[in-house]
Computed example of a mutant assay.
Amino acid sequence: LKKAGDRLGIPVIPSRLSILTRSVNKDRSPCFYCSQCNRGCTVYGDFSSSSVLVKPAMKSGHVDLYTNAMVREVLTDNNGLATG
């Protein structure tokens, strides 16, 4: 697959991953290759919106979380910050 992609000028990457090799804070530890990736990373060594974006936002207290809802658009101010 990689060779065919190269011939066509299409980059072929096995998978796009963002895996920590060292801790970035007290909530996210480095990956230690426990092979549980498909079941959810318990040390938050991978990138997932729930652990990297939602958890810190919830801790800040400056966010409202709506579950079982879909967003059609996000309204922003002149600085690009969400307003609605």
Rank of each mutant, 00 (worst) to 15 (best):
S15V: 13
S18I: 10
Y44N: 12
K59T: 10
R7E: 12
S23I: 00
G40H: 02
G84W: 02
A4T: 07
S60C: 04
M70Y: 09
C37A: 08
D77R: 10
S48T: 09
G61P: 08
D77L: 08
D77M: 04
P11T: 07
S15L: 04
V54Q: 12
S48V: 04
P14C: 02
S51A: 15
C41M: 00
Y66L: 15
L65C: 13
Y44K: 12
T21A: 12
T76V: 15
L1I: 07
R22A: 15
H62W: 06
T83S: 02
T83H: 04
H62T: 12
G61L: 09
G40M: 02
K55G: 00
A57L: 15
V54W: 05
V52D: 11
G80I: 02
A57V: 01
G9A: 05
A4I: 14
A57P: 01
M58I: 09
F47M: 07
C41I: 00
C37P: 01
V63L: 09
V24N: 08
T42S: 11
I19E: 07
M58G: 06
F32D: 03
V12C: 11
P30N: 13
F32H: 13
L17G: 06
S60H: 08
L8G: 02
M70D: 11
N25K: 11
Q36F: 06
S35V: 10
H62D: 10
K2M: 03
S49Y: 10
N38P: 00
L75A: 13
N79D: 12
A4P: 00
D64K: 15
L1Y: 12
P56R: 03
D27P: 01
G5C: 04
N68G: 00
L53M: 05
K55I: 11
G80Q: 06
R22Q: 14
D46W: 03
N78E: 11
T67D: 03
V43R: 03
G40N: 02
S51N: 13
N25F: 01
S29W: 06
L81M: 13
K3W: 08
S29Q: 12
P56G: 10
Y44A: 15
G40I: 03
K3N: 10
N79W: 06
V63T: 08
R28Y: 03
P11F: 06
N79H: 10
S29K: 14
S18A: 11
C37L: 04
V71M: 11
G61H: 08
V24P: 03
R16D: 07
R28Q: 09
H62Y: 09
A4M: 08
G84L: 06
T21H: 14
T67P: 01
D6R: 14
S29T: 06
S35M: 08
A4K: 13
I10F: 08
S60N: 04
R22Y: 10
C34Y: 06
S15G: 11
S35N: 15
R22P: 00
C41G: 02
S49V: 09
V24S: 06
K2V: 04
K59Y: 09
P30E: 10
K2L: 08
D77N: 15
H62P: 00
D6K: 09
P30H: 15
I13Y: 02
T83P: 01
T42W: 03
L81I: 02
S29G: 00
S18C: 13
G9V: 05
M58C: 06
T21S: 13
P11Q: 13
Y44C: 01
S29N: 11
S60G: 09
P11A: 14
A57R: 14
V74T: 05
D6W: 03
L75K: 14
G61I: 02
